[in-house]
Amino acid sequence: MRFKTEGIVLRAFNYGEADLIVTYLTADRGIIKGFAKSPRKIKSRFGSSLEPFTHARVSFWGKEHSNLPKIVQSDIIQPFSHVREDINDFLRLSHIIELLLSLYPEGISNKKIFYLFLQCLSYLEQAAAQIFCAEVDKNALYLLFKIRLIAILGYAPMLKQCGRCGQRGLFYPSEGAVLCVRCAPIGARPMQTSKAAVSFYEHGLTWPLSNLMRVKPSADIVGELIALLDEHLRHVLGKELKTAGFNIR
């Protein structure tokens, strides 16, 4: 059976001498993998269409429920090549991809996630290619994407009030929620949260990424929330992400 879909390349594994196993995020099939024959050869017809972050129209060939259909054609819609050339963007996106691959199960369609990631890539590309006069704050974009992603997937922690009784309290990463003094477990370590950070987070759960064109959160708020969500996700996943500790400088 042949099927066509639109996808964004998340990662590609070398397989054999010149083959690749490519992981896509698609709008209608969620995360899927495909096998491409000889794309690493210089004169391959795939060209650069299987490089990470490429948004492409892809044709697959395989049995209906095949785990690894063959990629028979791939036409670039948007290459997002500027993003690939910026080390910091590459690192941020690698982290996002690892998060996606860890939290989002394969083969389940979710258009919201697809278009959110596509929009995030578009903003980063426009910033990298200097299309906007006022550059978007990439750290804020990365943070807002993360907030929206975990909200869509159902992993967003409650920061406004105690998750058990509704009183004020502190955030406990091990519990995935804010808890008041009474409800907090003994010995668990809380994290301080500022009012401004909680307010930005609460709005961010539903904000489109385009809001960052007019709302500019301070570096302190962004830093505080990134640290908080990283700690929260570490507990959710039960492991450290490989990309979390990847500091290039």
Partner: peptide, 16 residues
């Protein structure tokens, strides 16, 4: 572009 290839088969990133 690789030597011996045709421009019409090049993708936009390679050509750019």
């Amino acid at each position: 572009l690789p030597i011996g290839g045709d421009i019409e088969f090049a993708d936009e990133v390679t050509m750019a």
